[in-house]
Nucleic acid binder design. Structure first.
Lengths: 331, 331
DNA sequence: TTACATAAAATTAACGTTAAAAGCAATAGT
DNA sequence: ACTATTGCTTTTAACGTTAATTTTATGTAA
């Protein structure tokens, strides 16, 4: 029914192998034959079938992107970055969402690789069992991790320590004395940001005070409101809050402050994390730490392609991206 | 190197076909053989290779999702909806972004279908040349359009007329007299929302006034600011604005109003469109028309699967989704 | 003229799987 | 005892492509 290489061969009066060689630009085809074949291809609207090709080549030209949740802005923005690099390649992007169901995660990854034969994996903000990674490495499938460091494979991520340091330093340099922190209750990122916060305090001779730290679970607007309430109660003199849990939470903080009659930035300076679209539109504008996520996604893709082509080894180091502080009216 | 059906066959002492039949749950395999084969499959960590399978079955189990721009919230949210239905199927999602380069669009679609052999296409907010659609229909590839009606194939979309009607009616019922409209300058959606706006005016005996309509090109915050300025200048007595161009633009409107000393909702009532995350967080909260996008995406997927399975024909009608009005403080 | 090199195309086999047809025991029916 | 039937497995061919090998035709050198 559909036009195959055989139909072209028959029409031109050559063998399928000859047509294949034309398609693949083999130099040992005569000019005459090449032209005839190309004409027939155009004429019959022939397109090479990647399934057949994949089978014999052992390569699908598919890249799998795996994340826990595609509602997460981070994952989506990463995908956008990866996608932007795709254009000039023959690769396709296949999306997999684990949807937070960790028990399925390993099965899913195995299926992606063994059944669908993706040429490479980009894994966003997910951990991987050491055992499975070893299995994959033995099979030789390239993997790049994004945001989550997994020993034994390249990771592309942001310098969280630095980002948190920058935010904290900004407060210190503008003479804030009691700097609160709102931060996720677990995870690599939270730990790193905590480290940056503490390093900055230490470098400038500020004491670290457990009572100035609020831990949040969900990174929501409500988490922000609740945390501010809690922090203010414990620390009436607090004059700055670094919301390392993200801008959404920071917006919750600002809203709560407004309700309580706390003036921003006069009484309280606020810095968020992420620079989401809306942070530029709040009133006052939210100062925040921006991470060029899409750029990082595109870098992750480059690393993966390097691994597929054999120019980048598994044991390559982590690629770190610099965050940037965006100063607006909230400080 | 990798475990194939042949390796399993050899180990168990049967032929590859027998193993295949076990994998495919053929009833004509003896219990004994089935058990032996399944044991070997587990033992050797065998996974069926979809490439080989696809070739003989003429089916890839891949669904292609095509959109112009994955930065668009609408497209992303749709993908999320589609994704949510994927879990219980054997289908994979392949993402294609035309990135607004229309000239490549047709080539891209052809490649998706002819080269990568996707089993079905979901096309989000894009038009398709009649000619190409005919070609695809002749080849029998199922296509579902999302948001953009294309004659000859099923479309899943929202009732824009109704959404705009609801917003306009809300103003009328709360006694607003001069209702402005900010709307995109072209496209099916804009036309439909305009229609809903006019229908509501007409039904309640309000005159339609060209001077109360502002057209925007980019749906941005700035477009909102600019439009409000322009509308207020022309219509000092305007007491409501329906921002059919979306919530982002509506937030621009509210911000501009604040700058001009126009009180919301006392002096001016505002209704947006989309109910983006932040609309709940503005001050005052933005009343808006919500569209259950993810739900619609999942419906699009269902329709596509129906077409693939032959239970839904090309000539099926449009599936329309009801919008919902979310009342907050801006009215 | 014979042998040899070269260029171009054809043959062959393979990638991993499955559908259809054929084969072969063991059992049942007459 | 012979044919049918049933139950299970094997054989064969095919999906669309490509890599490696072989063939054929043509040209060149001695």
């Amino acid at each position: 029914m559909r036009v195959t290489i055989k139909d072209i061969a028959k029409k031109v009066g050559v063998t399928p192998a000859t047509v294949s060689m034309v398609i693949n630009n083999s130099p040992k085809i005569s000019q005459r034959t090449r032209e005839l074949v190309l004409a027939a291809i155009k004429d019959m609207n022939y397109h090479p079938n990647y399934i057949g090709r994949s089978l014999v080549k052992g390569k699908t030209n598919n890249i799998a992107v795996v994340a826990s949740f595609f509602a997460s802005l981070f994952a989506l923005e990463s995908v956008r970055g990866i996608e932007s690099n795709l254009r000039n390649t023959q690769y396709n992007l296949i999306l997999y969402s684990t949807r937070g169901i960790e028990e399925n995660e390993n099965d899913m990854l195995r299926r992606i690789f063994y059944e669908r034969r993706a040429d490479g994996l980009i894994i966003i903000s997910l951990k991987m069992q050491k055992e499975l990674l070893e299995e994959f490495k033995k099979e030789g499938i390239p993997i790049v991790f994004v945001e989550e460091i997994v020993e034994g494979a390249p990771t592309v991520k942001f310098k969280n320590i630095k980002g948190a340091y920058m935010a904290t330093e900004q407060f210190i340099k503008t003479n804030r004395k009691k700097i609160g922190l709102i931060i996720g209750e677990s995870g690599q990122n939270a730990e790193e940001r905590m480290k940056g916060y503490r390093e900055a305090l230490e470098d400038y001779g500020y004491p670290y005070d457990e009572g100035l730290v609020a831990r949040v679970a969900n990174y929501t607007f409500e988490d922000g409101e609740k945390s501010l309430k809690q922090l203010v109660k414990k620390n009436p003199k607090m004059d700055a809050v670094f919301c390392a849990a993200g801008d959404v939470t920071a917006i919750g903080v600002m809203d709560e402050a407004k309700d309580e009659g706390i003036k921003i930035p006069d009484d309280l300076a606020v810095i968020g994390y992420d620079d989401i679209y809306i942070s530029n539109l709040t009133n006052p504008g939210l100062t925040t730490i921006r991470q060029p996520i899409a750029q990082m996604g595109s870098q992750a893709f480059d690393v993966l392609i390097g691994m597929i082509n054999g120019t980048i080894p598994y044991e390559s180091k982590i690629v770190s991206f610099e965050p940037e502080i965006i100063i607006r009216e909230s400080v």
